[in-house]
């Protein structure tokens, strides 16, 4: 889907934030990017989106070299959802907000509205279409930001810390939405420092370490190695810790723990 080859980027000459990084986002997967603060997680997604120009390296989309195309152009195929939805909400109504992107991509008003309504239905905000977006809760605003990206009908979605600022209920809803979109075929690039989300939802993960890729593979591979996880500056997911404490084989999700517990005790909860 998206391939990054030999990417290098630095804010100044001495210190490179990203150095010779190569990876690819495969069709239909959720690829998570993790790492300590300041290791360049969002720099990578910005490079993928075209918000930053790499010093070196190439970005391929479906085999096409898109390194030179600006973010506004790439947004037709890649949707980028920022951490704070307040930095993009400008319209008077929820519908108008979601219509912006398709309008920018040359669709007529009618087509744009159709696409916007479809996207709003997808994120369960259609009933609020005529409301002011400012009156939505933080979780709803985040879903609106996702809908405005979806309205352009992209093939890839980049989510930057999508659950920040939301309470546990809203978080569950948002993750469920992410999973649903993924099951419908959307490839997702997820930046997060929440290892619980990562363990439960990521197909694969990348861990950045001083501008390089310190680990690439399945979450289970990394989290079964406690020392390596900690050396990369990450914490073990809660499920992994709890399952170890209970003397169970390593589990990545609460559901797995429950399943194994039930098997062990032989009862049904």
């Amino acid at each position: 889907m998206i391939e990054i080859r030999d990417m290098t980027y630095g804010y100044n000459e001495e210190k490179k934030v990203i150095q010779n990084v190569s990876f690819s986002l495969r069709n239909g997967e959720i690829l998570a990017i993790a790492g300590r603060n300041g290791t360049g997680k969002t720099t990578i997604t910005r490079l993928v989106m075209g918000l930053l120009k790499p010093e070196q390296g190439t970005v391929f989309f479906d085999g096409r070299d898109v390194t030179q195309s600006p973010a506004a152009e790439r947004s037709a195929v890649i949707g980028y959802v920022f951490q704070n939805p307040d930095s993009q909400i400008f319209a008077n109504t929820v519908l108008e907000e979601a219509m912006y992107s398709p309008l920018q991509h040359g669709y007529s008003g009618k087509q744009a509205e159709e696409k916007a309504r479809k996207a709003l239905r997808e994120v369960a905000l259609l009933e609020f279409a005529e409301r002011s977006p400012q009156l939505l809760s933080r979780g709803q605003k985040q879903r609106l930001a996702i809908a405005s990206a979806l309205a352009a009908e992209p093939e890839v979605l980049i989510l930057d810390e999508p659950t920040s600022g939301q309470d546990c209920r809203e978080r569950v809803q948002l993750l469920r939405l992410m999973r649903k979109l993924n099951e419908e075929g959307m490839s997702i690039l997820l930046v997060t420092h929440d290892m619980d989300i990562l363990a439960e939802h990521a197909t694969r993960m990348l861990v950045l370490e001083q501008g390089h890729i310190g680990f690439e593979g399945k979450p289970a591979e990394l989290f079964s190695d406690k020392e390596k996880t900690e050396a990369l500056g990450l914490e073990l997911p809660e499920a992994v810790r709890v399952s170890a404490e209970l003397g169970l084989p390593i589990c990545l999700t609460p559901a797995e723990i429950y399943a194994k517990l039930v098997r062990r005790t032989g009862t049904h909860a």
């Binding site: 918000l51 506004a72 980028y80 930095s87 992107s101 990206a149």
Partner: peptide, 16 residues
Amino acid sequence: AESHSVSEAQACRGYK
């Protein structure tokens, strides 16, 4: 910094 992130966010929605 905020104005910078706003313009990035809007660029990602096709702002020209």
